[in-house]
């Protein structure tokens, strides 16, 4: 169980993480979502004692990361796929971590094989592809067999097969009762993996809960094609519908397809397409994080 309480980080005048209070529960995969610059990585780094919070606390079963007796046995973290010395082999990278993780050296080869890096164990990390670095980063997180995993953009750089493998593995780890938190800036990346999501926008949690609930809260979008777009736009304005541009015409949010069809027929507007889209989850995500650009 990871508990964030009022976690806040300011860099000068910029508030990167703003009063975050969240519980991340064991036995589930939690997706930590938000656009780039929303504060995901800063939050994870604060939880891991790498960045000092301006205010608030992050605790694992009541202890801060620095208070953990053998941190790598309690929390496995992979932050980015660049934290390796390029001249060190994959196996040697893990061997440097084995003593403080208090695991036998044999465990290093074991986790490398588990993440599919057995054949590359004696190669220098400088020769690794981004996908192999992602796997090595995961291997470091798993080295201490920890009950909690914090993974920042874990599928970054993985090929489709690797992504499918990562999903299965994260599900399996959560099924064993572990706390699994994965961050991503793409909802589609965690959609098939996460049970819960925390959506971050400008450092604030704008949604915390299950994916199912988020999906049903999403606004309905209906795509409309018409040979007379100006007439349809006037109709939408008169009825107060929200209209957005769409490659096939307009995306209308608010009314049902039946309401749109009836109103168009009443106004004598011909429609060529009237389709309710099932991308309501993505829509909800975009609505929650709307207008947030990257922090520069």
């Amino acid at each position: 169980m990871l508990e964030l309480r009022g976690l806040t980080k300011r860099f000068g005048r910029l508030t990167a993480v703003d009063d975050l209070t969240i519980d991340i529960s064991p036995g589930r995969v939690t997706g930590f979502l938000g656009p780039n610059g929303a504060g995901k990585t800063t939050t994870l780094r604060m939880a891991l004692g790498l960045v000092k919070p301006t205010a608030g606390t992050a605790t694992f079963d009541g202890k801060t990361y620095r208070q953990l007796a053998i941190p790598m046995r309690q929390v496995g973290a992979s932050l980015e796929a660049t934290s390796f010395h390029p001249g060190r082999t994959a196996l040697n990278h893990l061997l440097t971590l084995a003593p403080p993780a208090r695991v036998p050296d044999s465990r290093c080869m074991q986790v490398l094989e588990f993440v599919g890096l057995g054949p590359g164990a004696k190669r220098r990390v400088g020769q690794f592809s981004l996908g192999m670095r992602a796997r090595l980063s995961l291997a470091s997180a798993l080295l201490g067999d920890p009950p909690t995993l914090l993974l920042d953009e874990p599928v970054n750089g993985l090929d489709p097969e690797g992504i499918a493998w990562m999903r299965r593995m994260l599900r399996a780890l959560a099924a064993e009762g572990r706390t699994v938190l994965i961050s991503s800036h793409l909802l589609s990346e965690v959609y098939q993996t996460a049970d819960d999501v925390v959506i971050l926008s400008r450092g604030r949690a704008v949604y915390t809960g299950s994916l199912v609930d988020l999906e049903s809260s999403g606004q309905r979008v209906t795509v409309v094609s018409t040979p007379d777009p100006p007439a349809f736009a006037r109709l939408a304005a008169r009825l107060g519908w929200q209209l957005a541009g769409h490659p096939e015409g307009y995306a209308v949010s608010g009314p049902t397809a039946a309401e749109i069809g009836d109103a168009a027929a009443g106004a004598g507007i011909v429609l060529h397409q009237l389709a309710t889209r099932s991308d309501s989850l993505e829509t909800a995500f975009l609505a929650l994080t709307e207008g947030q650009g990257s922090i520069r």
Binding site: G49, L50, P71, E80, S83, L97, P100
Partner: peptide, 13 residues
């Protein structure tokens, strides 16, 4: 090489 991250994760003090 940004290896302080794994170093401090292993030994946070």
């Amino acid at each position: 090489h940004q290896t302080l991250t794994p170093t401090f994760l292993a030994t946070p003090r």
